[in-house]
Design a protein around this nucleic acid. Structure first.
Lengths: 143, 143
DNA sequence: TTATAAATGAGAATGTTTATCATTTACTCC
DNA sequence: GGAGTAAATGATAAACATTCTCATTTATAA
């Protein structure tokens, strides 16, 4: 993944804050991060970036297609790398664990519905909320 | 629709602010309202309710199942009456016009996907964003 | 290497939503 | 029907995520 090239293509200068943020998404543990999480992780690893810059950079990356923004339930935006293939999300309400899925049946039904209602479809967002049943889910419900 | 009864069932006292808010949703022009819109419409019709009360009442109505909360794109919550039948929304990004739909094929695919990923599904949200092609859409694109 | 436009940092400002607390109101019991 | 009690309200402060402002710094092009 040629990140400096991506930045350049987007008309953005190659700066340290931008590289640090990109690095988090590319090499971090968590593929889905909020602005606050990005900021805290940078601070934790000794990087000194201002919160305002984090917000600016995330928004610019969204506009240039490097990141995708999601509005999960709650009030804050969550970002992930745009690896080109659209997918939807299923989110655990106990531990926040996120899994991704793509379902062509749902996708085609959506197109059909938009057409039936006379809408030119731009975009859609589908989030499924539930309880994951992973061993490590902290608030795991006994089964 | 027996609204005082609904309030009572929810353990809420029957107060003027609550009746006014309910009335807006039941008899107003717009089925989908944000807290700010509820507040402004009450002010406009001469009713004197505090913004804090509007937020409180909306949240209580959501908890007791009288209203459903939606997170359309953007930062504010939008509410609508819970008439018992789940549905999803298609939203015009030009004029904000909202249409509702229900698609059993999508619903059943979602259940299947949740099961495949080991999730106990609570809930989901599906929003389709596009341009409506209604005559009165102010930013209507020429076809 | 220097000029210039862009990017950054710090903090103020914004918009939405929640908390606080004194005052008012609806409901219960006699 | 009227007093007591817990709940509801209003006004305002606070919290929260996010954006803006502007002086200073930095990356890039010439």
């Amino acid at each position: 993944m040629q990140t400096p090239k991506d930045l350049h293509k987007a008309g953005l200068k190659i700066t340290l804050p931008r590289l640090k943020v990109l690095n988090l998404f590319e090499n971090g543990d968590n593929r889905h991060l909020s602005a606050e999480e990005v900021y805290k992780q940078l601070l934790a690893s000794g990087e000194d970036v201002s919160l305002a810059t984090v917000y600016r950079v995330l928004t610019q990356f969204e506009l240039s297609g490097i990141l995708v923004r999601h509005h999960f339930e709650g009030d804050k935006s969550v970002f992930e790398l745009n690896h080109g293939e659209h997918h939807d999300h299923i989110v655990c309400m106990q531990c926040g664990h996120i899994e991704e899925f793509f379902d062509s049946a749902i996708e085609s039904r959506q197109k059909k519905i938009a057409a039936e209602h006379g809408f030119a479809i731009h975009d859609h967002s589908l989030y499924i909320y539930g309880d994951c049943t992973r061993e490590k889910c902290p608030n795991r419900r006994s089964e």
